[in-house]
């Protein structure tokens, strides 16, 4: 009889490539078509502006279905999954995310033909000296 699995600690998260494989259901992911617009150095990880653009005409036949944003070193790998539809004009989404520390961020796009494309970017999150100590 198999032993009970040990519960995972909060920080014991799956690595980035495993997370991407789960999103694509094991399908191959090609690098390209996706642009991840992200400052390489951010002053505070609590609200990091990020923009993802995917090359796509966004027509009924050829559009981006989903774009997922994942991180490498937060306690949890998911940031957001965006659902897009034909008629969007552009496959372009901007948001603000939390990054616990310097790390890689990945954007993975699922196209209407079932293919996956991705881009990665590395971000340095500077550590401030003067942070609030509640007393």
């Amino acid at each position: 009889m198999p032993s009970e699995p040990t519960p995972r600690l909060a920080y014991d998260r799956p690595p980035l490539d495993e997370v991407i494989r789960a999103f694509t259901n094991g399908m191959a992911v090609r690098t390209g078509k996706v642009t991840l617009d992200l400052s390489p150095l951010v002053e505070n990880g609590n609200a990091v502006p990020v923009k993802v653009t995917v090359e796509s005409p966004m027509t009924e036949a050829d559009h981006v279905r989903r774009i997922a944003l994942f991180n490498e070193r937060n306690p949890q790998p998911d940031i957001a999954v965006f659902h897009l539809f034909p008629g969007a004009g552009r496959a372009e989404v901007a948001t603000r995310m939390r990054l616990a520390t310097s790390q890689k961020v990945a954007a993975v796009a699922e196209m209407a033909d079932g293919g996956f494309w991705m881009a990665e970017a590395s971000v340095v999150v500077t550590l401030a000296a003067c942070i609030e100590d509640l007393i």
Binding site: A80, V81, H83, G89, M97, R98
Partner: peptide, 25 residues
């Protein structure tokens, strides 16, 4: 008709902000 949606997780910033596009019809 739904034109955009998002699943959000704790790694989204406080006061979550989203920007996207659509064609005016």
């Amino acid at each position: 008709r739904e034109i955009f949606a998002a699943d959000l997780f704790p790694a989204m910033s406080a006061n979550p902000f989203l920007a996207f596009t659509t064609i005016a019809t």
